[in-house]
Nucleic acid binder design. Structure first.
Lengths: 107, 107
DNA sequence: CATATATACCTCGCCTGTCAATGTATATAT
DNA sequence: ATATATACATTGACAGGCGAGGTATATATG
């Protein structure tokens, strides 16, 4: 079963931040990681991914730099900031709340 | 802490169906029930509620009838259909999946 | 009697996140 | 040559949530 967008909506940024918590990474790789972690049940669409990057950068949650690849396509790397770490903690806590609430409501 | 719209988005219909599973009810009451169940941490906005009713009716998940109140404001009652029960089971199962996925992704 | 509050319904139009479609460029496999 | 994988990015449509606004009935309060 695949998960509808509306259900995942709003988790995108938290998911990206979580990935960046482990290590700096770039768009393509982050998405691959997500797919792997979820056994291919969930993937961020590229447009969704990149618009989330813009928002996160705008909010100061991530900063970006170009990789120094000499071969292959260039990579734009993302790194989580202190602000991003804080935002992530908020997202995570919110998720715990949401779980409780929805579990209560869907009986 | 209040829950952002984006997080709850997509759960609205499931929440309403769940409420109707217990008994026929009407908009105002359904919302009150939800608030009570969540200790006032979550309420559906009216516009959200009514647009969800329209979708659910359109999809054949609920049917509606007017109450026979002789005093006070009229009430439009909603009842869940067999189709609605099936849809609810789907939503519920999806929620179990989503919980697992997000838990995996937010480490 | 005037006013506020609670109950109960509803619509319009904006906002925002998702995503299909499309485009660019590099490298490798067949 | 052609296809596929890697890697980036933008545009415009779509859909759900919701603020703001509206209608009507009943009761409480000063």
């Amino acid at each position: 079963m695949s998960i509808t967008s509306d259900i995942l909506r709003g988790h995108t940024e938290a998911i990206i931040l979580s990935s960046l918590l482990e290590q700096d990474s770039y768009g393509y790789q982050i998405n691959k990681d997500i797919m792997k972690k979820t056994n291919n049940t969930y993937e961020l669409k590229e447009a969704t991914l990149y618009s989330a990057f813009r928002r996160l950068e705008q909010a100061g949650c991530i900063r970006t730099y170009w990789g120094d690849e000499t071969v292959g396509a260039r990579r734009r790397y993302y790194a989580i900031t202190d602000e991003g770490r804080m935002a992530y903690q908020g997202y995570k806590q919110e998720w715990q709340e949401v779980k409780k609430i929805i579990d209560k409501l869907l009986k």
